[in-house]
Design a protein around this nucleic acid. Structure first.
Length: 353
DNA sequence: AACACGGGGAT
DNA sequence: ATCCCAGTGTT
């Protein structure tokens, strides 16, 4: 074990107080570890668990994922956010079937070369799936390193991050790498938390710089914040005589890439033009529904839905591959942005509200 | 170095 | 309201 006792103390804590029953641990197979690590990027454990269970039930192996249609993968991801993760996951599965015999490569650089896998995720996969000796540097480890070593400066800056990689590497044990990796994440998520960490219970309290210096609350240094812009848009909620809803597949890049959503327009002029080109009916008969406010990390979005019923498509646009009438009972099989899904469920027949 | 990329939970 | 989370990819 490393000489300073960091890892051995963390492992002893993990044996008693860590989480040993997370779904991706039983079995702790490479495919499941990989999937869990991707889902857990910027996403908390309790959010991920039901998505993970549903995903592995539908696509239990890497080759099964590789063979699945993209719409199926996005439907399984729908509501989890950061949909590039799902597209990269799918792309990586195909590459692994093509180049690595249907398995993930057991090699750091080969993993990092795959879409959606950076250095931290690659280390987490190698350590948890095979016990290989690589560090991770996620938000938990950054927080623990900042406090334990008294490192000031936002961890997103390259200089701070580089120093933290070095420190994380310096603590690696020579055995139990899978448990050690899980231990760090459990420790950061449940004891050395962002707010009100349980320092009195901490196995590292005797050597923690932040605790010694009374800087626990101010470390790690918060990200400098900037004002977030607001964007407004109209969304067109067209229904046909059978109450089906007209959905449009979004472009493969940008926000909500490749998901099915409602047609959007910047203003009424643009909306009217789009309506006239694609639909038969009277734009001015649209009913304005309650606006939807949706907050992203980097901007706020206010959507104003306009609803029409009993419409038809113009004959000429039936071949448009990105447009589709969708019945309410088909919604669960498609990848749809969370606020749009919520809106559609609110107007569904026999729905609450 | 800064930004894009979702959604939910905590305060 | 605001922050931030088991980050990565693009510019």
């Amino acid at each position: 074990m490393s000489a300073d006792g960091f890892a051995s103390r963390l492992l002893a804590w993990y044996d008693r107080d860590g989480r040993h029953d997370l779904p991706w641990m039983h079995p702790r197979a490479p495919y499941r570890v990989w999937l869990s690590e991707i889902m857990l990027q910027q996403t908390q454990v309790q959010t991920v668990i039901p998505y993970f269970e549903r995903f592995v039930a539908a696509l239990p192996s890497l080759p099964a994922l590789a063979a699945a249609p993209q719409d199926d993968v996005l439907a399984l991801w729908s509501g989890l956010g950061y949909y590039a993760r799902a597209r990269n996951l799918h792309a990586t599965a195909k590459i692994c079937v093509e180049m690595h015999g249907g398995d993930l490569p057991r090699d750091l650089d080969a993993l990092v070369a795959l879409p959606g896998i950076g250095r931290s995720t690659a280390g987490a996969i190698l350590a948890q799936a095979w016990g290989d000796r690589f560090p991770i540097l996620d938000g938990n480890v950054k927080r623990v390193m900042a406090r334990y070593h008294g490192i000031a400066g936002w961890p997103g800056t390259p200089a701070v991050e580089k120093e933290m990689w070095r420190l994380a590497e310096s603590h690696l044990p020579y055995a139990r790498m899978a448990d050690y990796t899980q231990a760090q994440m459990d420790f950061g998520a449940t004891l050395c938390t962002r707010h009100d960490p349980a320092c009195v219970l901490c196995p590292l309290q005797s050597d923690c710089a932040a605790l010694r210096e009374g800087r626990v609350a101010e470390l790690p240094t918060a990200k400098p914040n900037k004002p977030v812009p607001e964007r407004r848009a109209l969304v067109l909620l067209a229904q046909d005589a059978r109450s089906r809803v007209l959905l449009l597949k979004r472009p493969p890049a940008g926000i909500w890439a490749s998901l099915w959503s409602l047609p959007e327009a910047e203003d009424h002029e643009t909306a009217r033009a789009w309506f006239g080109k694609h639909l038969r009916g009277d734009y001015d008969h649209g009913e304005a529904l309650e606006p939807i406010a949706h907050a992203f990390t980097h901007y706020r979005l206010q959507l104003q839905p306009l609803r029409w019923q009993g419409l038809g498509l113009r004959d000429a646009v039936n071949d448009d591959g990105g447009l589709r009438w969708v019945a309410f009972d088909e919604l669960e099989s498609l990848g749809i942005p969370a606020p749009i899904r919520k809106l559609l469920l609110a107007i569904a027949p026999r729905s609450p509200g």
